[in-house]
Design a protein around this nucleic acid. Structure first.
Lengths: 232, 232
DNA sequence: CGGATGCTTCGGCTATCGTCGAAGTATGAA
DNA sequence: TTCATACTTCGACGATAGCCGAAGCATCCG
């Protein structure tokens, strides 16, 4: 009767369909305007405005005014993390829709989870990195020495990452696959490098599309175990 | 307009104060009867029964019938993890109560987080272990070689832990302190060893009480940095 | 300045859901 | 069998809160 309500208030905030839609729409880490969010949530502008005010008051979102627009974004990676965790729970709940539309397939294949790669590709990346001994640990990850040189050669400034407060490697449970993918500062840096290299393109929403050379480069670099074509 | 509702349904479940109380009451990992949970939530038996049916249907709880009692427990550590994560968010929300009762103090000092040690002591344990080089990493933890021998001597069967699917080390964000404590299989094993040794006693609820020898043993083993009394 | 766009506030409608009293079912004890 | 305990189901009440239309600010453009 004391600490229950504190979690209840946040959870209630996430528990409204319109607000949940708003939050998931923001899970790609981008900032969106009120009208865009209203459309994403399927409600009118006024309604969305009210919801956003509540989410902002709870510090789940941060607002930024630019001209006559107001841009909202998630106030941090931890918010996105909780949302992904809830998706995981929702799945076990059986509340998961069996309906798998075409957009669902793309989402499952590769998407952005706040700022890093998730979905089938994300899981493959982590598995490949583990298999090659770049990253050690199962649920709690750590860079190996081989991994340090590998990612440095990949064009990532590890020293800079380690200076920040954000964990470098973080296992993030993937809601569509049932395995972890790589989050944390390294996960974010990897995704932005892959975009720079033209391996992958961000479409609207959270969907990520790999280019042809992207797929080749990805598989050459991370050597994920493929379903069948695996020569000894 | 597609995946939002799936998280909304779970979150709405956690968003009711009575249900949130029920869940937090179960966060110590024990199983409680309907009447006990009704009392914990501050509602009548009928109301609690209804809530429990919903939580059970969503697979957040598992029920077990014994005689004319029905015992409920959280259906897994992941549920507890999400709850702790929500507490973390709630705190940043500013929804945290400033009121700190006497029971609160005990909870902050040492409590059980599903099945491992949390609170001030839990944070000290992890910090001490990191300072001694038993555990490496900041947000993503891994056992070092020194750590392996240390915990083996402490009486923990690491081989058994690593066989399970559960991550061995897991950084679990502590909602009362603002640091991580040690969760995962190792965290759970450590707590049960400490109880076996008589270092710590489980009171009612989530509160843990350290015995005199427990404090001594704890500090000798984990050598946490104390506030002032730190001889070079 | 006037009109258009983006957003917020207000007011009232409606529906959902938590709540409890009362009655019904199951288990255990005398 | 009879009573008591533990729990579930039903039905009705009441409050919270989401929703939208309309009106009010603010900003940009011509």
């Amino acid at each position: 009767m004391k600490e229950g309500p504190v979690i209840a208030s946040v959870a209630a905030l996430l528990g409204d369909p319109a607000r949940a839609n708003i939050l998931t729409a923001l899970m790609d880490g981008r900032a969106l305007t009120v009208s865009e969010l209203a459309q994403a949530a399927g409600v009118t502008l006024q309604t969305a405005s009210g919801h956003l005010a509540k989410l902002d008051a709870a510090n789940l979102l941060t607002a930024e005014k630019q001209g006559r627009h107001r841009y909202f974004r998630l106030s941090g990676p931890d918010v996105a993390q909780v949302l992904e965790a809830l998706m995981g729970l929702a799945q076990r709940t059986g509340a998961t829709r069996v309906r798998t539309g075409p957009k669902d397939a793309a989402l499952r294949s590769a998407r952005v989870c706040y700022d890093h790669l998730a979905g089938e590709r994300g899981v493959l990346l982590l598995k490949g990195a583990q298999r090659q001994g770049l990253i050690a640990g199962e649920g709690d990850l750590a860079l190996t020495d081989r991994g340090r040189t590998f990612f440095a050669e990949f064009g990532i400034d590890l020293a800079a990452l380690e200076k920040g407060r954000r964990p470098v490697c973080r296992a993030c449970l993937d809601w569509s696959e049932r395995h972890s993918h790589l989050g944390g500062a390294l996960g974010a840096a990897l995704l932005s490098r892959m975009i720079d290299r033209g391996w992958v393109r961000r479409d609207t929403g959270r969907v990520l599309t790999f280019t042809c050379e992207g797929v080749e480069g990805f598989e050459a670099a991370f050597k994920p175990i493929q379903d069948n074509a695996q020569a000894a």
